[in-house]
């Protein structure tokens, strides 16, 4: 089996990956179970990961295309016991229900806030428009992302 070299959550790894395998298959096989499969066709966003800093559907990216690149999965977001402010905000605002879409939604938010620290509500909705959630009405996720943006801004100013 061919292999790919990926930097996953800041750790450099060489992983087996057949040429036709998607990033989703490879990551899940390696135990990154926060990358969820919801459709396998890029329609739901449950498998969202960051590829060189951009949120993508892991089910639509061939692992080979990610060779040499950096990947951030939900497992890499918290540092030890300290949750990332987006994770904290998702808990505080009641944005998590079943939690299956949550990792993807959080990573899309992370991508947004990394390039736009003061997003409008419309920009937030646009940023998570590829992440479907069937439990919530998106109200609390939008609020959580707003709250996280605020927390991250004030953390930067301290």
């Amino acid at each position: 089996m061919a292999s790919v070299e990926l930097t996953i959550n800041s750790v450099r790894r060489t992983l087996d990956a057949a040429p036709g395998e998607t990033l989703l298959e490879v990551l899940r096989r390696e135990g990154y179970t926060g990358v969820k499969r919801g459709c396998g066709s890029g329609d739901c966003g449950a498998c969202t990961v960051l590829l060189d800093g951009r949120a993508v559907n892991a089910c639509l990216v061939l692992a080979a295309k990610a060779n040499g690149k950096e990947i951030l999965t939900i497992e890499g977001l918290a540092s030890g016991d300290a949750l990332h402010p987006i994770q904290e905000a998702f808990l505080d605002e009641g944005a998590v229900q079943c939690g299956y879409c949550t990792p993807g939604m959080i990573l899309s938010a992370y991508d947004l806030l990394s390039r736009n620290p003061t997003p409008s509500e419309g920009e937030i909705r646009q940023a998570i428009s590829g992440n479907l959630c069937r439990c919530t009405g998106y109200v609390k996720q939008v609020r959580a992302i707003q709250a996280a943006a605020e927390r991250m801004r004030s953390a930067r100013h301290e």
Binding site: L51, V56, S129
Partner: peptide, 12 residues
């Protein structure tokens, strides 16, 4: 381009 699919797909 803002109306093409979602950012997840536009990024790829």
């Amino acid at each position: 381009l803002r109306h093409v699919a979602s950012p997840l797909q536009r990024n790829v």
